[in-house]
Amino acid sequence: MRGGAVTTGSLLERESSLGVILMLPGALLLMVFMAYPFFLGIWLSLTDSGIGRVGRFIGLQNFVDLLSDTIFHQTARNTLIYALVTVPFKCALGLGLALVLNNRMRFSNPVRAAVMMPWIVPTALSTLGWFMIFDPVFSPISWLLRHVGLISKNINFLGDPGLAIASVCWANIWRGTPFFGIIILAGLQAVPADLHEAAAIDGAGLWHRFLHVTVPHIKGVVLIAGLLSVIWTFADFQLIYVLTKGGPANQTHIFGTYAYQIGLSATEIGMGAAIALYMFPILSVFAVLLLIYLRREE
């Protein structure tokens, strides 16, 4: 392959230079609008800067201070719950969805588009819908359960300590399920039909076929989707911001919302940047896992 470069001498033909040239436009955008501000952000986290106030360099002081902040502990715990507990649910529900959609049926395109809705509409708007559904007084869920006699008091979806985090997780599962569904569906469609038929002829049952034909084929996509989902959920912001702003009593704060509260509302931008950067090592673990997996597949 390398020999191909010899034919013309131009930059565009030599693999090494062409590669760099092709990378350039995207890389440039990422450098200017992502890498540069990102390093500015790291610098901020090492200072006691406020908004509109250039701070002094204070080393790792912000990071150390956070270690003894009980709200930060709570935030870290919440984030782990939010990111790790929701993924198995999204995955299981997504798998079920994919298996259902993989059948031949009428209106399959509109149905697929419809079930994608939670994933594709603006979160800022759909979460407002959930905000209404979780309303402590006017929740339709409470109304229904009250009318069939299952409960006597309205459910305090976003106000009870355990329920609040469960409710935001629920909304997150709702939003993420279609993503898993569609990715796994893509995986299912890559399973050659004759494999199933061959297994069926051999007398393999449905479960057996699922386990030995389907699962090996979709293992990869599930893993990728899962890791991506953990990463995205970990760094989430909008959903919680609209529903609870981290309340009540910080029971739903995650890194993003806490960083926002300290960095923006309280203008302690250095500290806020430090909170956000605490995400980095944990996210990196998942990102490295993902990279290792992808590399191995190659």
């Binding site: 230079s17 990378m23 501000p37 990102f38 500015l40 760094a235 990279l291």
Partner: peptide
């Protein structure tokens, strides 16, 4: 091409930078 591995990983890492951290700078 030289640095392709490095660039590939770099672009991938861009996933990990939340807008909440970036928007002020």
């Amino acid at each position: 091409f030289p640095g392709s591995n490095f660039l590939g990983v770099g672009i991938f890492l861009a996933y990990l930078v939340p807008p909440t951290l970036l928007f002020l700078p």
